[in-house]
Amino acid sequence: MYKAIINEDTYISIFEPRHAEALYHLIDGSRDSIGEWLSFPAKTNNIKDTRLFIEKSLKRLSENNGYWAGIWYNEILVGSIGYLYIDWTARKTEIGYWLGDDYAGKGLVTCACQKLINHAFMDLELRKIEINVASKNTKSKAIPERLGFKKEGIIRNFEYLNSEYLDRTVYGLLKEEWTINRNP
């Protein structure tokens, strides 16, 4: 299945059913940190849940409406990245991502985002990419900022998570902005 090489140590690959156990253990081992900003760890209680998630992701892929892939570092699943949807009429998508606790700070998500950005603009011929992050999640916000995304606004009280309302910062990148400011 689809595999994109980032460097000699890192690649991204579409999730397949055989990845369900590794995905579950990665989520379970980083449940608190991922769950601080995202709701899915609370809904991921066993390997059956990750199998179902992978099946849904593969269905979206078959419908040409986005997908999730694993981020692999030294042949170990360390995180996930994907297109949450693809709006073919507006020619846009949104990228989502997360990493396990032990793999932050290595530039893995930034490099994986670059791959997905290039693919979206060059191969899928999309016009816009969004990245939406919890406004208080400074580490996650640094990624779109580093990649040249523009802050487009804040959605107040976007979701209720961990007994608090979280705002969501919306970042956008247009194809012509990436072409001008292309990252390697």
Score class of each variant (00 low, 15 high):
87 D>K: 07
61 L>E: 08
103 Y>L: 01
144 P>S: 13
168 R>H: 11
79 G>T: 11
89 T>R: 08
147 L>R: 04
88 W>S: 04
60 R>S: 10
84 L>S: 12
128 K>C: 11
150 K>Y: 13
139 K>M: 06
162 N>P: 08
86 I>Q: 10
144 P>V: 12
69 A>C: 14
139 K>L: 08
80 S>A: 15
127 R>A: 04
95 I>Q: 01
91 R>N: 03
100 G>M: 07
145 E>G: 03
65 N>P: 01
153 G>L: 08
160 Y>W: 15
108 L>C: 01
126 L>H: 05
80 S>P: 07
150 K>V: 14
136 K>T: 11
139 K>Q: 11
144 P>T: 13
89 T>M: 03
54 I>S: 10
54 I>K: 09
68 W>C: 04
59 K>A: 11
132 N>L: 05
69 A>M: 15
107 G>P: 02
119 H>V: 07
62 S>C: 01
68 W>I: 06
127 R>V: 01
159 E>T: 13
83 Y>S: 08
75 E>T: 10
66 G>T: 03
148 G>A: 12
156 R>K: 15
160 Y>K: 14
110 T>P: 01
121 F>S: 05
168 R>A: 05
108 L>F: 00
151 K>V: 15
59 K>H: 11
90 A>M: 05
167 D>G: 05
93 T>V: 05
157 N>T: 04
108 L>M: 00
139 K>D: 09
70 G>D: 08
134 A>P: 01
80 S>D: 12
125 E>Q: 13
109 V>A: 09
128 K>Q: 14
51 R>I: 08
163 S>V: 02
96 G>I: 07
80 S>F: 03
67 Y>Q: 07
69 A>G: 03
167 D>F: 09
165 Y>M: 06
130 E>N: 13
45 N>D: 12
136 K>M: 08
96 G>M: 06
115 K>A: 08
166 L>V: 09
109 V>Q: 03
122 M>L: 13
61 L>A: 10
97 Y>A: 11
65 N>Q: 04
153 G>Y: 12
100 G>E: 05
76 I>V: 14
146 R>E: 09
72 W>M: 13
150 K>L: 14
156 R>Y: 11
53 F>R: 14
103 Y>W: 08
55 E>M: 12
105 G>S: 01
56 K>I: 06
108 L>A: 01
53 F>M: 14
118 N>K: 12
90 A>L: 06
131 I>M: 14
135 S>I: 02
166 L>A: 05
72 W>H: 07
61 L>I: 01
61 L>T: 02
144 P>D: 12
124 L>Q: 09
78 V>R: 02
57 S>D: 07
154 I>Q: 14
81 I>F: 06
125 E>T: 09
168 R>Y: 06
74 N>V: 01
124 L>G: 01
145 E>W: 06
148 G>S: 11
59 K>W: 03
